[in-house]
C-alpha cells in the first residue's frame, strides 16, 4: 500500500494549485477588464445615415441642444428631432439644399419615412432613466454624454454602467451645476473643490436626495 502513490504525487496538489493560479489569474483579470460596459460600450461610434456633426452645429454655430432635442426638459425620453427640424435650415432654397450628405434627410422629407439613426446610448430595458428629472435638477448633458460639442461623430463617452450611475447618486455634489449652465457644454468648474462647494449648496437648496435603492431605477 505504501507504494500505491508514486513519490511525485506528494507535489501534485501544489502543482495543481499553481497551475490553476497561472491559468485562472489571466482569465479572471480578462473578465474583470473586458466584461464591463467600460470596455463593451465606451467608444461605440457607429456610422449614421447622415454624417451630422455636433461639433459644427453646437461649437461652431452655437446652437442650443434643445433646438433639436426639444422635449428633454419635459419628457423622460430625450427626443431625436423630426426630419422637419433639419429641413428648417436644409430645405430647398436654404442651406446646402443639394448636398449628397443630406440625401437621407431629403428622402425622409419626401417619403415621410423616418431617418434610421443608430442609437448609441442604450440603457438596459429594465433601467428607467428620466432625462427631464435630471436636467431640471442640475445634471448637465455633459455629465453623461461627454463633450458632444467637440464630437464630429458622436460616440459613447461614459460607460452608463450601474456603478457609474451610483457614483453620482451617492455623491451628487461632485456633478451638480447651476441651472443656467445645464446646456452649456463649455462650463466647467474652476476646481474640484469649487465643484464640491457649489454642488453641496445646490444639493441642500434643492433637497437633492437621489435614490440608491433598487426601486429608484428598476420599477
Amino acid at each position: 500500500m505504501s507504494n500505491f502513490f508514486p513519490k511525485w504525487a506528494n507535489w501534485l496538489p501544489l502543482q495543481l494549485l499553481v497551475c490553476g493560479l497561472v491559468i485562472g489569474a489571466p482569465i479572471t483579470l480578462g473578465i474583470w477588464y473586458y466584461f464591463t460596459p467600460k470596455y463593451t460600450r465606451v467608444g461605440y461610434q457607429p456610422d449614421q445615415p447622415v454624417p451630422f456633426s455636433h461639433s459644427l452645429h453646437v461649437k461652431q454655430l452655437g446652437m442650443d441642444c434643445r433646438y433639436c432635442h426639444s422635449f428633454v426638459e419635459v419628457a423622460g425620453h430625450s427626443n431625436l428631432p423630426a426630419t422637419q427640424t433639419c429641413i428648417n435650415c436644409h430645405g430647398q432654397g436654404r442651406i446646402l439644399p443639394n448636398s449628397p450628405r443630406l440625401a437621407a434627410v431629403r428622402d425622409s422629407w419626401e417619403t415621410g419615412q423616418p431617418i434610421p439613426w443608430v442609437q448609441i446610448h442604450r440603457l438596459p430595458d429594465y433601467a428607467y432613466f428620466n432625462h427631464a428629472v435630471h436636467v431640471n435638477r442640475g445634471v448637465s448633458c455633459y455629465s453623461c454624454h461627454g463633450a458632444v460639442n467637440e464630437m464630429s461623430v458622436v460616440y459613447e463617452a461614459e460607460s452608463l454602467s450601474m456603478k457609474w450611475c451610483l457614483d453620482c447618486h451617492r455623491a451628487p455634489e461632485n456633478f451638480l451645476r447651476p441651472p443656467s449652465e445645464i446646456f452649456n457644454m463649455n462650463w466647467h468648474p474652476a476646481s474640484s473643490s469649487e465643484q464640491r462647494e457649489l454642488g453641496t449648496k445646490f444639493k441642500e437648496e434643492w433637497k437633492i436626495n437621489p435614490p440608491v435603492s433598487c426601486g429608484g431605477c428598476h420599477h
Binding site: P37, Y39, T40, R41, V42, G43, Y44, Q45
Partner: peptide, 9 residues
C-alpha cells in the same frame, strides 16, 4: 482611444 463601429456586446 478605443473607438469601434461594432455594436456593444
Amino acid at each position: 482611444p478605443h473607438k469601434t463601429k461594432r455594436p456593444p456586446i
